[in-house]
Simulated assay, not measured.
Amino acid sequence: MNHKSADAAAAGALLGRIDAVMSDLDGTLIDTLGDFVEAVNRTLADLHLPAIAPEEIALRVGKGSEHLLHSVLNWALAQSGQAPKAMQTEALFAQAWARYQHHYETINGQHATVYPGVREGLARLRARGLRLVCLTNKPQAHALALLQAKGLDDAFEAVFGGDSFARKKPDPLPLVQACAWLGTAPARTLMLGDSSNDAQAARAAGCPVVLVTYGYNHGQPVREVGADGHVDGFTQWLPH
């Protein structure tokens, strides 16, 4: 058995020891990079700032929309020859945030695709009697609309966004609060994600964690992130 197969087997072995799964959204269930690229570049155009390449946006996804936009604005100001001073960026942020929200709501899901195996995988998890919630740093309204647009909303008992709690992943608070809502012990509640944010939050909350390798993870190899298992496909670790 090669290390990848062993890694997936380790993930599968967790199934008998958990009662619920908290799943990340962007980079785990749905490839939303196209939506981010479109909304961000429409926003930058409104502000007369240079467009940013998809690979640069991919490095900035995962820590919430506010972090994404702040990071993009710093990049765009630097590219346009303007020093990204804190006061300047903050003054621009309010305008950028309003335009970004408008554009994202307009295109949410139009440039996004459900990853292979996700629908089947969620069905398999539910068939095992596991409870499922979605736990993302994306604003809750955007997450709900996206899941509905892609026909995945019925898989989850609840959807918690980056604005559902006082802090976002990688802080453990969202996981702790989601476990409290579920009424499950953290040690028996799996975090399924694609990045170091998910792993860091899970470790701090006392939850097991499995990471998919096809997501974003800020441009870094996700197999270098400590987890209870890594899987190359959403169904790789799930028995029929």
Rank of each mutant, 00 (worst) to 15 (best):
A53G: 03
Y100H: 09
Q101M: 12
A83Q: 13
F36E: 03
L25F: 04
D154Q: 12
I18W: 06
R119S: 10
Y115R: 02
I52S: 01
K150H: 15
A86V: 15
L182C: 09
L15T: 01
T32W: 02
P84H: 10
S195C: 05
A166P: 01
V225C: 02
A78R: 14
A141K: 11
P172G: 03
A78H: 14
L238K: 06
H218M: 12
P170V: 09
K169D: 10
A149N: 02
V40C: 01
A201S: 03
A180Q: 14
Q148R: 14
E157F: 02
R42G: 06
A13P: 04
A8D: 02
E55C: 05
N2G: 06
L125F: 09
L190K: 00
V114N: 02
N74S: 12
I30P: 07
K85W: 12
S80V: 01
L130W: 08
A58R: 02
L152W: 06
G219C: 10
I52T: 09
A204W: 10
E157H: 03
M22I: 06
R126D: 08
D46M: 11
F156I: 06
A123W: 10
R203Q: 13
V61W: 01
G129A: 06
M22R: 06
W181H: 12
P186I: 07
G151D: 02
V114E: 00
